[in-house]
């Protein structure tokens, strides 16, 4: 005679009609531990989301909000500033993300090749440091380095070698601003980005390398056939996770942009800032919320597309 199974085991066997409650009771210890996180997420992430409704209202923070339907979205779609900011957000974020990831992988591989542990640690510490500088400080430092006057280090070097006669205004030039933005971002974030790749590299079984060497594989082939396949999953995971943040680009642009490059630099978050604080009138928080909502939806869409692509390519996603 079969003994009647209980709990999740019974659910697995298809005998239990109330799996959720049983499961909750069975794993109550885990759920109890999860509770603070759940409460935190609800209070600080989900309840504030109720503010999304203001995207459909005209609301200046004093009088009662007035429902205006999709008027903010209609205005948004008709404003060249919004489209320019939207395009810049996508371009700057994606290029920055790709450059940072590629540079982080390259740097990780280089650090991984270092044989002296002391030197490796020193090198790692040095490349991590820029990450801890605030963007305001970073912008000030680079404003000095890139100054068009004789005080600018880069222009002084270029001038010394006769490459330029007159200093280039890198941060005030429409053609130079974006390359400089990418360089500064790479300088600041590449080191930090290597942590996860170095962790993955250190987890690769050394025997694989030994075996490959015995089979006659050189350094390049070991990299191609052992290291890179091992890193692929991490690279895709990092890319997808960072894609969720591409629409949040703000601080780095805000501190580096200026009036001359607004068409190249203005992103959605700085656009929201301008709309809120630069209108010469009380801002309509409804419009800023509408722009923010579109930005979040696009970010969400990008993650889902990337996850889907991951399914297609690798047979599994990460979300």
């Amino acid at each position: 005679m079969n003994k009647k199974m209980k709990g999740p085991a019974a659910y697995a066997a298809g005998e239990n009609k109330r799996p959720l409650l049983v499961s909750l009771r069975y794993y109550r210890g885990f759920y109890l531990m999860f509770l603070p996180v759940l409460i935190f997420a609800l209070v600080f992430h989900y309840i504030p989301m109720l503010g999304i409704r203001y995207a459909f209202y005209s609301y200046k923070g004093i009088k009662e909000p007035v429902f205006i339907g999709l008027a903010h979205f209609e205005k948004m779609l008709n404003m060249p500033g919004f489209w320019s900011a939207f395009g810049n957000t996508i371009t700057l974020s994606i290029v920055k993300l790709l450059l940072n990831t590629i540079m982080a992988v390259v740097l990780s591989l280089m650090l991984n090749e270092l044989r002296s542990v002391t030197f490796k640690k020193i090198a790692q510490t040095i490349v991590y440091l820029p990450h801890f500088m605030s963007w305001v400080v970073t912008a000030s430092v680079f404003a000095l380095i890139l100054s068009p006057t004789s005080a600018g280090l880069l222009n002084a070097v270029l001038s010394k070698f006769g490459i330029v006669n007159e200093g280039i205004y890198f941060l005030g030039s429409q053609s130079w601003w974006r390359p400089m933005f990418y360089v500064i971002n790479v300088w600041k974030d590449t080191g930090w980005g290597t942590i996860i790749f170095i962790a993955t590299l250190s987890g690769i079984n050394p025997e694989l390398y030994e075996a490959a060497s015995m089979d006659g594989a050189g350094r390049f082939n070991r990299l191609r056939f052992i290291t890179m396949p091992a890193l692929n999953n991490t690279i895709i995971t990092v890319l997808i996770l960072n894609l969720a943040k591409v629409m949040n680009l703000f601080e780095s642009v805000f501190v580096l942009q200026n009036d001359a490059v607004s068409r190249q630099a203005d992103v959605l978050q700085t656009y929201i800032y301008t709309q809120t604080f630069n209108s010469g009138a009380l801002p309509d928080y409804g419009y800023s919320t509408a722009v923010g909502l579109v930005s979040s939806l696009v970010g969400c869409f990008l993650v889902l597309v990337c996850n889907k692509a991951s399914y297609k390519v690798r047979g599994r996603g990460i979300v």
Binding site: K60, G81, A260, S262, Q275, T276, N278, L282, P283, D284
Partner: peptide, 13 residues
């Protein structure tokens, strides 16, 4: 309130 934010950005640019 609706247009001056964009207008000032354009003027400055």
């Amino acid at each position: 309130a609706t247009y001056n934010g964009d207008l000032m950005t354009l003027k400055k640019s």
